[in-house]
Nucleic acid binder design. Structure first.
Lengths: 254, 254
DNA sequence: TGCGGGCAATGATCTACGGCATTGCTCACG
DNA sequence: CGTGAGCAATGCCGTAGATCATTGCCCGCA
């Protein structure tokens, strides 16, 4: 068994009342009662190394995850190997809700950086719905938020040019990364994607992605590092993309 | 005021216990108690003529809809008018849940054929969550199902060729139409899309869509009518698309 | 010390798809 | 009865983006 396949499921180490997400401005805090329930709901923690598969398409997967730290992504593949990245997972995001609530997973999830995840049991979802309507509501809210992101991605892939798409993706990720606080306080503010990830998200070939990114680099709105990029001029990037982030207030998480 | 802009909101005419969806095989029935709540939850009915806008992007929209009959679609547009159709609405589908639960709509909804919709008030959603966990669960289930459809669309637009995409779309719609029973008992089994709709769904130009469809017509898997098409060979179509519908049991609706 | 694998850069060619323009049909409407 | 709008079909040409191939760099590992 190689290092990257190692599965780590430890009992809760960070108690929920010290959950790092609670302190962040972007997130809504729990009421005392909710906190108590969630703490009990929490089943363990999972540490995922970069490149590790967290959820595999086609398998039954009895757990749900909330991202505590790090970057991941969801994807699907065609039989011949063509891969489409559907969305990225950042702190506060829920993984495993997508697709029929209880049956086989319809997509895979992989860690982009080292991630830590909060693990819940799917089974206990019904208890959550029965006992905590406010949390159930949050869950629906989260699902509907994911949907609206997918809507935007669909618009982007379907109707934007390669340059606009690339700008959109990076603007989108950079914005989300700042809001959720994955970067940490002081940076560096690096989006940890390879060009292959970008290509698989945009529905472009690797070569063409490289050439498209080059235009953004030459325009000085972006810097490419090894295995990642840094947005230098978010405003310009959004302008190229024809996209603006929608202001949101504090959002819920589970 | 022209005919196509007319808005019709009538009080409930079909009582919920006679709801046509309840009789269909694809849908789960309510318990007596649930039925009573939903009947009370129901605010009215809405009749939409073809081409009519039901929900407009950017507006606050205090209602939710469940499709009772007919076809509709959700879409977004870029500032310069490029349009992307995100998904289609068929009987049993919920419209208006996507996007942040309570704020401005992030997409538009338009009727493709004459539609009848069941109208609910968003505000009363909290009561639903408080009083009927099972229905709340269904709501989340529905949202997560919509997500998985979007995932598939994203895969399709991002990674399939024009021919595969077209085959996928038609196979997908044909399958869903049969399952939900929009076609009625005896047909005709016509997907009521223009080639412009197909193009805007697939992220292709109108001309190229026409040429791509032509290949499917020539192969005999499809028949094109005025303002619509009929799938002649579903199996072949799925094969071309590299897609199979996933078996589902009875699904909930609200 | 050399070797292979992951990542990025870039040139050369090919093709899938977009954009433009025209035609023809049907149907609604004055 | 004529006119115009919506929909589909199709030919021509240009281009965005795919595919193939090569190079270079860095790093982990034998």
């Amino acid at each position: 068994m190689t290092m990257t396949q190692a599965k780590t499921l430890t009992p809760p180490r960070i108690p929920c009342d010290l959950c790092p997400l609670r302190r962040r401005e972007a997130f809504r805090d729990f009421s005392g009662e909710e906190l108590q329930f969630v703490a009990n709901f929490k089943f363990g923690e999972h540490l995922a190394e970069p490149g590790t598969t967290i959820i595999a398409e086609g398998q039954r997967h009895p757990q749900l995850y909330t991202v505590l730290a790090g970057w991941g992504f969801r994807y699907k593949i065609l039989e011949d190997g063509r891969r489409q990245i559907l969305n990225y997972l950042l702190p506060g995001d829920l993984a495993g809700l997508q697709g029929n609530l209880m049956s086989e997973m319809l997509h895979s999830v992989e860690a982009l950086t080292r991630m830590s995840l909060c693990v819940f049991e799917r089974q206990r979802l019904t208890a959550l719905f029965r006992q905590h309507p406010s949390l159930a509501y949050d869950l629906t809210w989260i699902a509907s938020r994911e949907e609206s992101m997918l809507d935007e991605h669909l618009l982007s892939i379907g109707r934007r040019t390669a340059l606009e798409r690339a700008a959109y993706l990076l603007a989108f990720l950079d914005h989300r990364a700042h809001v959720t606080g994955v970067f940490g306080e002081e940076g560096p503010f690096v989006l940890p994607l390879t060009q292959q990830h970008v290509a698989d998200t945009l529905g472009l070939s690797l070569v063409h992605t490289n050439k498209t990114l080059r235009k953004l680099l030459d325009a000085g709105v972006l810097r490419w590092l090894d295995r990642g990029s840094e947005v230098l001029d978010p405003a310009r990037l959004r302008e190229i993309a024809g996209w603006q982030p929608t202001k949101e207030g504090r959002r819920p998480f589970i």
